[in-house]
Design a protein around this nucleic acid. Structure first.
Lengths: 185, 185, 185, 185
DNA sequence: AGTTAAACGAGACGGTACGTCTAGTCTTAAC
DNA sequence: GTTAAGACTAGACGTACCGTCTCGTTTAACT
């Protein structure tokens, strides 16, 4: 029989998500065990296995539920400034241990769906901002805005994942500078 | 006592590396166990633990030893063409299951040193090519070549790791196009 | 609060007892679970736990209620014949899978009270028959009839429980023969 | 691969047997878990599972190894006295908590083979004593000595297993008295 | 050539965590 | 307003690997 979501104990569900998030922050994803989550949540292991197929989705839910979502970017008259703000914000997010641990793990497990849900909002915001700029001629008419947004964030994400160099705010600035050169009319 | 490399059995060493590479290709990094490698190589577990501290370095060695290195890029008079060739080559490399599995795992384990050894050569080649172009004025005098090279590859690496979209040759081309706009005088 | 027997659903009660007996016959006592009984009876587990403290008493009730009691032994003028009939009857009872499973389990759980209720009747019948024989001098005046009855049945019960040898009718006969030698004047 | 008995750690083996016996005495067979045995013995669970298929055989080995075997009965000129001594001895054995728990459990699990190994020695001794008596005419020529030995012990075993009445020394005496009446010429 | 010390194959060991199972209790939706 | 359904806590189950630790057996360098 499949579990009956209607009868689900919200108390247990929340306790599990909280415990999972606390533990992933404390010991990291790799050393986090379902047994420890169950123990800390005061919950039977089966209750976790009943509702989540694996560590990854569990932590995804924990993150989604308990960590506040990124606010929409404000759109001012300063394109470069707005992009810089947005990228710096992304850097801050990547420095959050919980986001870092959960997201890395999902990447590693190939949970593209979940990774996308975590990362996509930033792309959307970036594209929206570029589209506004595009409409008023601040950006080349034939520019591929999607590709540009991907490039902006991709630069950060690559450094973040590969740890090839520190993820500084200056780096974010320089990426914006470089890409803007390619976008300007 | 530290192990005495002089007496090391080359037969066992090679058998281990071959077994490791075959297994990582067959079952992936996560499901690969030292026990399985030892069994397949016809070797005692201790012989592996004696010479490698962990799965990661073992597979790194296996990859380095058994997979042919990428040849240096030729430098022609066609800058865009050369960059495109190099990026397409990188895509081919990322599509090799063994490279993919080993490299992803090293990324995930934070073995930045080893990852760098695997990925850096491409950056170096790219920078060299850009430097030649810079010298002859094909590229803006004030361009940050390091950043540009990182951006070019970063675009690929991010898609590769995040699996956010397919890693096509067309994508490589479009990245070169975009970045070149930022580099031209 | 204690369960209120007045409100008890007789329908559920009977369904539970029937299911329990069918299951114990089908899978044996050890593999019988309360969960399975509840499922087969179309009853909630709690309804079982409300009225029975454990598997043992439940099966005891099931047995008592649904399996016909042993009839009183007929008393003829043939003492040895009567004893033999009675012991052979006991052997038949022990070969009933339901009796065997339930009774063994109760023995193992140390439910002496319930075991006694199941086995005592045979002892009583045997003692009665011996007492008649005693009265008419067929049995030694100073014989301990209780001990004799216990010995007669004990021989069977020990073989039954220990499975040290097959429980045949011949064995029953030989036991009667041996004990009768001790009882005759 | 089957375990290699030659490399077996005697230290662990003994620690396991000791722990098992202590635990079965402390908590009884049913509540004894392999996990607890492993923990108390300071041993990995796998080391138990490697060498024993189940709780039953483990405890059998523990009992056989650590509890002194019953000495052979002395044969004096006093038949009744010798039988009484032997039966009283059996009662003492049955009162040993470890023997009781282990043996009951083996009975319940239907491990007739192991039960036989535990109980048979007493039968053999009894039969030997009766055979001596038979040879010198203390016992009827046509007596079935096997059946007599079984009856003597069966009386005890049945009371022991059924707990139908206390297992006293007086009871042992009275059983000897009754059976002897059947055996005397 | 004989000695000897290290690496070797094998695999048992103490552990950790897995994912599954059953017991017995507690909760909820529906009749 | 009782009951079926079933989710819950608890914890043992038996398995898979971990990384360490002997065992005897090669193997190769130094007498």
């Amino acid at each position: 029989m499949p579990p009956d979501a209607a009868r689900r104990s919200d108390r247990s569900r929340r306790a599990i998500l909280v415990a999972a998030l606390e533990l992933v922050e404390a010991v990291g994803y790799a050393r986090l065990t379902i047994e420890a989550v169950a123990a800390r949540a005061g919950v039977g292991k089966q209750t976790i296995y009943r509702w989540w197929p694996a560590k990854g989705p569990l932590l995804f839910d924990a993150f989604i539920e308990l960590v506040p979502a990124v606010p929409d970017a404000v759109i001012t008259h300063d394109l470069v400034g707005d992009l810089v703000v947005e990228l710096r914000d992304a850097v801050v997010e990547l420095e959050d241990r919980r986001f870092d641990q959960v997201c890395r793990a999902l990447v590693h497990e190939g949970r593209t769906d979940l990774v996308t849900l975590l990362l996509m909002p930033r792309r959307v915001v970036l594209e929206e901002r570029l589209r506004v700029a595009h409409r008023i001629g601040e950006v080349r008419a034939d520019a591929d805005l999607e590709a540009a947004a991907e490039l902006l964030l991709g630069a950060l994400y690559q450094r973040w994942l590969l740890r090839s160099a520190p993820l500084t705010r200056e780096y974010a600035d320089s990426v914006v500078g470089l890409v803007m050169r390619a976008l300007r009319p």
